[in-house]
Protein backbone atom coordinates (compact mmCIF):
# COMPACT_ATOMS: atom_id res chain seq x y z
CA UNK A 1 0.00 0.00 0.00
CA UNK A 2 3.05 2.20 0.23
CA UNK A 3 2.82 3.11 -3.44
CA UNK A 4 -0.56 4.73 -3.23
CA UNK A 5 -0.07 8.05 -4.90
CA UNK A 6 -2.96 10.38 -4.43
CA UNK A 7 -3.83 12.58 -7.33
CA UNK A 8 -6.80 14.08 -5.57
CA UNK A 9 -6.46 17.75 -4.77
CA UNK A 10 -8.93 17.09 -1.97
CA UNK A 11 -6.24 15.17 -0.20
CA UNK A 12 -3.28 17.22 -1.32
CA UNK A 13 -4.73 20.51 -0.17
CA UNK A 14 -5.45 19.33 3.34
CA UNK A 15 -2.08 17.64 3.56
CA UNK A 16 -0.47 21.04 3.76
CA UNK A 17 -2.35 21.84 6.93
CA UNK A 18 -2.08 18.54 8.76
CA UNK A 19 -0.68 15.15 7.83
CA UNK A 20 -3.64 13.23 6.40
CA UNK A 21 -1.91 10.96 3.90
CA UNK A 22 -4.00 8.20 5.47
CA UNK A 23 -7.17 9.42 3.74
CA UNK A 24 -6.49 7.69 0.40
CA UNK A 25 -5.21 4.61 2.23
CA UNK A 26 -8.38 4.34 4.28
CA UNK A 27 -10.64 4.96 1.28
CA UNK A 28 -8.85 2.41 -0.89
CA UNK A 29 -8.81 -0.01 2.05
CA UNK A 30 -12.54 0.29 2.68
CA UNK A 31 -13.32 -0.06 -1.03
CA UNK A 32 -11.17 -3.16 -1.35
CA UNK A 33 -12.65 -4.69 1.81
CA UNK A 34 -16.14 -4.16 0.45
CA UNK A 35 -15.23 -5.65 -2.92
CA UNK A 36 -13.52 -8.58 -1.19
CA UNK A 37 -16.57 -9.41 0.92
CA UNK A 38 -18.92 -9.41 -2.04
CA UNK A 39 -16.75 -10.23 -5.07
CA UNK A 40 -13.28 -11.61 -4.56
CA UNK A 41 -13.93 -14.09 -1.77
CA UNK A 42 -16.97 -15.68 -3.49
CA UNK A 43 -15.03 -15.96 -6.77
CA UNK A 44 -12.11 -17.59 -5.02
CA UNK A 45 -14.50 -19.87 -3.10
CA UNK A 46 -15.85 -21.35 -6.34
CA UNK A 47 -12.44 -22.65 -7.40
CA UNK A 48 -11.45 -23.61 -3.87
CA UNK A 49 -14.60 -25.68 -3.28
CA UNK A 50 -14.33 -27.23 -6.75
CA UNK A 51 -10.85 -28.55 -6.06
CA UNK A 52 -11.31 -29.27 -2.37
CA UNK A 53 -11.57 -33.02 -2.96
CA UNK A 54 -8.78 -33.12 -5.50
CA UNK A 55 -8.43 -33.20 -9.26
CA UNK A 56 -9.81 -36.73 -9.59
CA UNK A 57 -13.23 -35.82 -8.20
CA UNK A 58 -13.16 -32.56 -10.18
CA UNK A 59 -12.50 -34.22 -13.52
CA UNK A 60 -15.01 -37.00 -12.82
CA UNK A 61 -17.74 -34.42 -12.13
CA UNK A 62 -17.03 -32.63 -15.39
CA UNK A 63 -16.84 -35.81 -17.46
CA UNK A 64 -20.11 -37.15 -16.15
CA UNK A 65 -22.58 -37.71 -19.09
CA UNK A 66 -25.34 -35.53 -17.61
CA UNK A 67 -22.84 -32.71 -17.18
CA UNK A 68 -21.75 -33.11 -20.77
CA UNK A 69 -25.30 -32.99 -22.12
CA UNK A 70 -25.90 -29.88 -19.98
CA UNK A 71 -22.81 -28.26 -21.51
CA UNK A 72 -24.03 -29.15 -25.01
CA UNK A 73 -27.49 -27.71 -24.39
CA UNK A 74 -25.99 -24.53 -22.94
CA UNK A 75 -23.81 -24.14 -26.03
CA UNK A 76 -26.75 -24.82 -28.33
CA UNK A 77 -28.95 -22.20 -26.66
CA UNK A 78 -26.16 -19.61 -26.90
CA UNK A 79 -25.38 -20.59 -30.49
CA UNK A 80 -28.97 -19.78 -31.48
CA UNK A 81 -29.66 -16.80 -29.21
CA UNK A 82 -26.46 -14.83 -29.88
CA UNK A 83 -26.64 -14.74 -33.73
CA UNK A 84 -30.37 -13.92 -33.65
CA UNK A 85 -29.87 -11.04 -31.26
CA UNK A 86 -26.81 -9.95 -33.23
CA UNK A 87 -28.83 -9.57 -36.44
CA UNK A 88 -31.60 -7.87 -34.50
CA UNK A 89 -29.13 -5.51 -32.82
CA UNK A 90 -27.62 -4.40 -36.15
CA UNK A 91 -31.05 -3.87 -37.74
CA UNK A 92 -32.40 -1.94 -34.74
CA UNK A 93 -29.27 0.22 -34.45
CA UNK A 94 -29.29 0.94 -38.19
CA UNK A 95 -32.91 2.11 -38.11
CA UNK A 96 -32.53 4.09 -34.90
CA UNK A 97 -29.12 5.68 -35.45
CA UNK A 98 -29.25 6.50 -39.15
CA UNK A 99 -32.85 7.71 -39.62
CA UNK A 100 -35.28 10.16 -38.04
CA UNK A 101 -38.67 8.80 -37.13
CA UNK A 102 -41.36 9.31 -34.55
CA UNK A 103 -41.39 7.19 -31.39
CA UNK A 104 -37.66 6.57 -31.42
CA UNK A 105 -37.15 6.89 -27.67
CA UNK A 106 -40.18 4.68 -27.04
CA UNK A 107 -38.61 2.04 -29.27
CA UNK A 108 -35.30 2.24 -27.37
CA UNK A 109 -37.16 1.83 -24.08
CA UNK A 110 -39.06 -1.18 -25.42
CA UNK A 111 -35.81 -2.81 -26.56
CA UNK A 112 -34.45 -2.43 -23.01
CA UNK A 113 -37.60 -3.94 -21.53
CA UNK A 114 -36.28 -7.51 -21.04
CA UNK A 115 -33.60 -6.12 -18.71
CA UNK A 116 -36.19 -4.83 -16.29
CA UNK A 117 -38.28 -8.00 -16.22
CA UNK A 118 -37.52 -10.61 -13.55
CA UNK A 119 -35.92 -13.71 -15.15
CA UNK A 120 -38.63 -15.84 -13.58
CA UNK A 121 -41.31 -13.76 -15.30
CA UNK A 122 -39.38 -14.02 -18.59
CA UNK A 123 -39.82 -17.78 -18.33
CA UNK A 124 -43.40 -17.51 -17.12
CA UNK A 125 -44.58 -15.53 -20.15
CA UNK A 126 -43.50 -18.35 -22.46
CA UNK A 127 -45.25 -20.90 -20.25
CA UNK A 128 -48.39 -18.75 -20.55
CA UNK A 129 -47.98 -18.69 -24.33
CA UNK A 130 -46.91 -22.25 -25.09
CA UNK A 131 -47.64 -24.28 -21.92
CA UNK A 132 -50.41 -26.83 -21.80
CA UNK A 133 -52.79 -24.22 -20.38
CA UNK A 134 -51.31 -21.46 -22.54
CA UNK A 135 -52.65 -19.69 -25.61
CA UNK A 136 -51.09 -22.06 -28.11
CA UNK A 137 -50.95 -25.01 -25.70
CA UNK A 138 -53.90 -26.99 -27.09
CA UNK A 139 -52.82 -26.42 -30.69
CA UNK A 140 -49.24 -27.50 -29.92
CA UNK A 141 -50.46 -30.58 -28.06
CA UNK A 142 -52.67 -31.51 -31.01
CA UNK A 143 -49.70 -31.38 -33.34
CA UNK A 144 -47.49 -33.15 -30.80
CA UNK A 145 -45.14 -30.19 -30.62
CA UNK A 146 -43.44 -29.28 -27.38
CA UNK A 147 -42.04 -25.85 -26.61
CA UNK A 148 -42.20 -25.56 -22.85
CA UNK A 149 -40.28 -28.17 -20.85
CA UNK A 150 -38.29 -28.81 -24.02
CA UNK A 151 -35.34 -27.35 -25.89
CA UNK A 152 -37.31 -24.71 -27.90
CA UNK A 153 -38.57 -23.17 -24.65
CA UNK A 154 -35.03 -22.96 -23.30
CA UNK A 155 -33.86 -21.25 -26.49
CA UNK A 156 -36.80 -18.80 -26.42
CA UNK A 157 -36.17 -17.86 -22.79
CA UNK A 158 -32.46 -17.40 -23.54
CA UNK A 159 -33.22 -15.17 -26.53
CA UNK A 160 -35.54 -13.09 -24.35
CA UNK A 161 -33.11 -12.42 -21.51
CA UNK A 162 -30.23 -11.60 -23.89
CA UNK A 163 -32.43 -9.61 -26.26
CA UNK A 164 -31.07 -6.06 -25.67
CA UNK A 165 -27.33 -6.70 -25.32
CA UNK A 166 -26.07 -6.09 -28.87
CA UNK A 167 -28.66 -3.42 -29.71
CA UNK A 168 -27.98 -1.28 -26.65
CA UNK A 169 -24.24 -1.44 -27.33
CA UNK A 170 -24.59 -0.47 -31.00
CA UNK A 171 -27.29 2.21 -30.80
CA UNK A 172 -25.29 4.88 -28.91
CA UNK A 173 -22.11 4.00 -30.82
CA UNK A 174 -23.74 4.38 -34.23
CA UNK A 175 -25.59 7.50 -33.14
CA UNK A 176 -22.29 9.06 -32.08
CA UNK A 177 -20.67 8.17 -35.41
CA UNK A 178 -23.37 10.01 -37.34
CA UNK A 179 -24.36 9.48 -40.94
CA UNK A 180 -21.63 11.31 -42.84
CA UNK A 181 -19.44 8.31 -43.61
CA UNK A 182 -22.44 6.43 -45.00
CA UNK A 183 -23.51 9.48 -46.99
CA UNK A 184 -19.98 9.80 -48.38
CA UNK A 185 -20.06 6.13 -49.38
CA UNK A 186 -23.42 6.55 -51.14
CA UNK A 187 -22.08 9.59 -53.00
CA UNK A 188 -19.13 7.48 -54.11
CA UNK A 189 -21.56 4.94 -55.56
CA UNK A 190 -21.83 2.25 -52.86
CA UNK A 191 -24.99 0.14 -52.72
CA UNK A 192 -26.76 -0.97 -49.53
CA UNK A 193 -24.79 -4.20 -49.18
CA UNK A 194 -21.43 -2.49 -49.74
CA UNK A 195 -22.45 0.21 -47.27
CA UNK A 196 -23.16 -2.35 -44.54
CA UNK A 197 -20.11 -4.55 -45.07
CA UNK A 198 -17.49 -1.99 -46.04
CA UNK A 199 -18.41 1.06 -43.96
CA UNK A 200 -20.91 0.53 -41.16
CA UNK A 201 -19.94 -2.85 -39.72
CA UNK A 202 -16.16 -2.30 -39.81
CA UNK A 203 -16.73 0.97 -37.95
CA UNK A 204 -18.63 -0.67 -35.10
CA UNK A 205 -16.76 -3.98 -34.98
CA UNK A 206 -15.44 -3.53 -31.44
CA UNK A 207 -18.77 -2.39 -30.07
CA UNK A 208 -20.40 -5.31 -31.82
CA UNK A 209 -17.90 -7.75 -30.35
CA UNK A 210 -18.40 -6.21 -26.92
CA UNK A 211 -22.15 -6.72 -27.16
CA UNK A 212 -21.70 -10.29 -28.40
CA UNK A 213 -19.36 -11.14 -25.50
CA UNK A 214 -21.83 -9.87 -22.89
CA UNK A 215 -24.76 -11.46 -24.73
CA UNK A 216 -22.95 -14.80 -24.79
CA UNK A 217 -22.03 -14.65 -21.10
CA UNK A 218 -25.63 -14.06 -20.13
CA UNK A 219 -26.92 -16.70 -22.59
CA UNK A 220 -24.69 -19.38 -21.13
CA UNK A 221 -25.28 -18.37 -17.53
CA UNK A 222 -29.02 -17.69 -17.46
CA UNK A 223 -30.72 -19.51 -14.63
CA UNK A 224 -34.14 -18.15 -13.57
CA UNK A 225 -35.85 -17.90 -16.95
CA UNK A 226 -34.49 -21.21 -18.17
CA UNK A 227 -35.40 -22.86 -14.87
CA UNK A 228 -39.08 -22.02 -15.37
CA UNK A 229 -39.35 -23.43 -18.90
CA UNK A 230 -36.97 -26.36 -18.58
CA UNK A 231 -38.86 -28.94 -16.56
CA UNK A 232 -35.47 -30.14 -15.28
CA UNK A 233 -35.25 -33.37 -17.25
CA UNK A 234 -31.75 -34.67 -16.58
CA UNK A 235 -29.65 -35.23 -19.64
CA UNK A 236 -32.30 -33.62 -21.82
CA UNK A 237 -33.50 -30.16 -20.73
CA UNK A 238 -30.82 -29.24 -18.22
CA UNK A 239 -28.44 -26.44 -18.98
CA UNK A 240 -25.21 -26.17 -17.06
CA UNK A 241 -26.57 -23.71 -14.44
CA UNK A 242 -29.60 -25.97 -13.87
CA UNK A 243 -27.32 -28.99 -13.59
CA UNK A 244 -25.38 -27.15 -10.86
CA UNK A 245 -28.61 -26.55 -8.95
CA UNK A 246 -29.55 -30.23 -9.05
CA UNK A 247 -26.10 -31.34 -7.88
CA UNK A 248 -26.16 -28.76 -5.11
CA UNK A 249 -29.60 -29.77 -3.89
CA UNK A 250 -28.38 -33.37 -3.80
CA UNK A 251 -25.57 -32.21 -1.47
CA UNK A 252 -23.04 -33.18 -4.15
CA UNK A 253 -21.13 -29.96 -3.43
CA UNK A 254 -17.82 -30.95 -5.01
CA UNK A 255 -19.49 -31.76 -8.34
CA UNK A 256 -21.69 -28.66 -8.17
CA UNK A 257 -18.66 -26.42 -7.64
CA UNK A 258 -16.70 -28.27 -10.32
CA UNK A 259 -19.38 -27.40 -12.90
CA UNK A 260 -19.67 -23.92 -11.40
CA UNK A 261 -15.93 -23.42 -11.88
CA UNK A 262 -16.40 -23.92 -15.63
CA UNK A 263 -18.93 -21.09 -15.70
CA UNK A 264 -16.73 -18.95 -13.42
CA UNK A 265 -13.88 -19.47 -15.89
CA UNK A 266 -16.20 -18.38 -18.66
CA UNK A 267 -16.99 -15.26 -16.64
CA UNK A 268 -13.30 -14.49 -16.18
CA UNK A 269 -12.61 -15.01 -19.89
CA UNK A 270 -15.56 -12.72 -20.60
CA UNK A 271 -14.10 -10.01 -18.38
CA UNK A 272 -10.65 -10.31 -19.96
CA UNK A 273 -12.09 -10.11 -23.49
CA UNK A 274 -14.35 -7.25 -22.46
CA UNK A 275 -11.43 -5.27 -21.03
CA UNK A 276 -9.33 -5.97 -24.12
CA UNK A 277 -12.13 -4.88 -26.45
CA UNK A 278 -12.74 -1.76 -24.38
CA UNK A 279 -9.13 -0.66 -24.66
CA UNK A 280 -9.06 -1.42 -28.41
CA UNK A 281 -12.24 0.57 -28.85
CA UNK A 282 -10.90 3.48 -26.83
CA UNK A 283 -7.72 3.49 -28.91
CA UNK A 284 -9.55 3.42 -32.23
CA UNK A 285 -11.99 6.09 -31.25
CA UNK A 286 -9.36 8.72 -30.93
CA UNK A 287 -10.39 11.47 -33.35
Amino acid sequence: MASIASSAPLVRATARRRPVAWVPIVLVGVALAYLSLFLFVPLFAVFFEALRKGWGVYLAAIREPDAWSAVKLTLLAAAIAVPLNLVFGVAAAWAIAKFDFGGKSLLITLIDLPFSVSPVISGLIYVLMFGLQGWFGPWLAEHELKVVFAVPGIVLATVFVTFPFVARELIPLMQAQGREEEEAAVLLGANAWQLLWRVTLPNVKWGLLYGVILCNARAMGEFGAVSVVSGHVRGYTNTLPLHIEILYNEYNFAAAFACASLLALLALVTLVLKTAVESRQAREQRP
Binding site: A184, L187, A190, N191, P202, E284
Partner: peptide
Protein backbone atom coordinates in the same frame (compact mmCIF):
# COMPACT_ATOMS: atom_id res chain seq x y z
CA UNK B 1 -27.34 9.89 -55.32
CA UNK B 2 -25.16 7.02 -56.50
CA UNK B 3 -25.82 7.99 -60.12
CA UNK B 4 -25.43 11.76 -59.87
CA UNK B 5 -21.65 11.72 -60.36
CA UNK B 6 -21.23 14.36 -57.72
CA UNK B 7 -18.07 14.76 -55.68
CA UNK B 8 -18.89 15.84 -52.14
CA UNK B 9 -16.46 16.98 -49.45
CA UNK B 10 -17.82 17.05 -45.92
CA UNK B 11 -16.96 19.67 -43.32
CA UNK B 12 -15.61 17.03 -40.95
CA UNK B 13 -14.11 15.05 -43.84
CA UNK B 14 -16.16 11.84 -43.21
CA UNK B 15 -13.13 9.73 -44.05
CA UNK B 16 -13.66 6.01 -43.42
CA UNK B 17 -11.78 5.66 -40.17
CA UNK B 18 -11.05 1.96 -40.50
CA UNK B 19 -9.48 2.27 -43.97
CA UNK B 20 -6.03 3.46 -44.98
CA UNK B 21 -5.74 6.66 -46.98
CA UNK B 22 -5.20 4.58 -50.11
CA UNK B 23 -8.35 2.53 -49.48
CA UNK B 24 -10.35 5.66 -48.74
CA UNK B 25 -9.47 7.14 -52.11
CA UNK B 26 -9.95 3.78 -53.86
CA UNK B 27 -13.40 3.21 -52.32
CA UNK B 28 -15.43 4.84 -55.08
Amino acid sequence: VQEREVGFVFQHYALFRHMTIFENVAFG
